[in-house]
Every structure is written in structure tokens, then in C-alpha cells.
């Protein structure tokens, strides 16, 4: 064993060092090595260089978005000078990207992604509603609906993807509490259509109640863990 090892090593005469494995040049000085070398004595596997780059899908999406913005500005400028509709196209695409970035960043944690989307979509819809002349559709429909939908989606996703209850609790809790926000709208009488908000608050209340009754201890320990100072 020893003998074979010694006869098959390489040697750098500049650095006066022996080099194991099969190499083209000396790792230190890049000089030519004397001797045969032995593939068997390699200490590390060969790992080819992986070039990290954006996924092609993302690239295409970026391309389409930018083209759409530019083209809509162009059409706007040529044909319908009196209106500013192309700004809405740009804003819409911007909103889509904000949402998408959050999805990509949090993609490894599905319930977290869902809660983030609830908050994000709520804020963006209020902004939209406000910027195109306040009609109240964002608080009438969007916020209550999205809260309820999120709870249902989380429950279904947890079943399909086998996410444990413990990993879900905190997000259900956050969404449940967020679901009570429409009460404020109701109390202050900001709403023109009340029933989505009433449904949302009811579902949230049932959700929270179920959480406390069935997962109360777990919820407490989960909160302790996440909130420790």
C-alpha cells in the first residue's frame, strides 16, 4: 500500500512539496509537476462550476412586464393623449412584482407566504381604491374576503402538504386577529356593503375559538418560543 502511494505522487521542484492526487500543475505556484499522479488519491471530488443566475421563467416575466409598460406608454402617447391610463398599467405591474417578490422570498414557508400576501394585498387594494377616487370597494369586499380565503387556503394547504398544526398555529392566529380589523370599519360606519365584513369577523371568531380550545397549550408554547426576549 505504502509503496504504491509513494511511487505515484507528484512533486513540485520549485516549491519542494509533494502533491497527492492527479494534477496538472502545482496548487501553490502553478508550475509543472514531476511524476505520474494517482487519481485514487484525490482528496476531494470534482464539483463543476455552477453559474447562478435567474431562472429563465423570471427573465421572461421581467421582459414581458417591461415591454407591456413601455408599449402601453407608447400607445397612450400616440392614441389617447387626454387620459393617463398607462400609469395604471405600470402600477398594476408594479403591484404584481411586489407580491411576487414576497412569494419568492418566503417560498419555503407556505403559511407565512399566505399571511404576507393577505397583508400586502390589503394594503395595495386600499392604495388602489384611494388613488382612483375612494369608492370603498377595498374595505367593503377585498379585505374581508382575502382574510377568509387565506384561512381556508391555509387549512387546505396544511392538509395537502402535511404541514403540522404547530407550524400553522401562529399564522392562523395572525390571520384570525387580522380578520377582526373589519370590525373597526363596521363600528365607524365606513362601509357601504356590510355583509362580507360580518362574515369575515364571524369566521375569524370561530377560527380563534377553535384554536384556543383545541390548540390552546400548543399556542401558548408556540408564542413563548417565538416571542422570547
Amino acid at each position: 500500500m505504502r509503496g504504491r502511494e509513494e511511487s505515484l505522487v507528484q512533486y513540485c521542484e520549485n516549491c519542494n512539496v509533494t502533491v497527492k492526487g492527479s494534477n496538472l500543475v502545482c496548487p501553490l505556484c502553478g508550475g509543472i509537476l514531476q511524476g505520474q499522479g494517482n487519481q485514487e488519491e484525490e482528496a476531494f471530488p470534482h464539483v463543476p462550476t455552477i453559474y447562478q443566475e435567474f431562472h429563465i421563467f423570471i427573465r421572461i416575466l421581467i421582459m414581458i412586464s417591461f415591454s407591456m409598460v413601455v408599449i402601453s406608454f407608447a400607445i397612450n402617447a400616440i392614441l389617447t393623449k387626454e387620459s393617463r391610463w398607462s400609469f395604471f398599467v405600470a402600477a398594476g405591474i408594479l403591484c404584481m412584482w411586489i407580491s411576487l417578490i414576497f412569494i419568492i422570498r418566503k417560498r419555503n414557508n407556505i403559511p407565512k407566504t399566505i399571511v404576507w400576501q393577505v397583508v400586502l394585498i390589503s394594503i395595495l387594494s386600499v392604495l388602489w381604491d384611494y388613488s382612483i377616487g375612494w369608492r370603498g370597494w377595498s374595505i367593503d369586499y377585498v379585505i374581508p374576503t382575502i382574510c377568509v380565503v387565506a384561512m381556508i387556503v391555509m387549512a387546505i394547504a396544511a392538509k395537502i402538504l402535511k404541514i403540522g398544526v404547530r407550524n400553522l398555529i401562529i399564522y392562523l392566529l395572525v390571520d384570525g386577529i387580522f380578520g377582526f380589523v373589519p370590525i373597526i370599519f363596521l363600528l365607524f360606519g365606513w362601509l357601504s356593503v356590510g355583509y362580507p365584513s360580518v362574515i369575515c369577523v364571524t369566521v375569524s371568531a370561530i377560527n380563534l375559538l377553535a384554536l384556543i380550545i383545541f390548540e390552546g397549550e400548543n399556542m401558548k408554547s408556540e408564542l413563548d418560543k417565538r416571542m422570547h426576549i
Partner: peptide
């Protein structure tokens, strides 16, 4: 670059120490 590594090991080999090297990055 491997200049510091080269300096380090060469100083040792100059003192008569026998050194056997292995390395990971062939590219």
C-alpha cells in the same frame, strides 16, 4: 490567488520540512 499559501509552504519546505499537499479546486 495562492501567493500567501505559496509563501507559507515554501518557507517551511526551505527549512527542510517535507510537505504533502492535497487541494480541492482544479478549475
Amino acid at each position: 490567488g495562492t501567493d500567501i499559501q505559496k509563501n507559507f509552504f515554501r518557507m517551511l519546505s526551505k527549512e527542510g520540512i517535507s510537505i504533502t499537499l492535497s487541494y480541492n479546486s482544479k478549475e
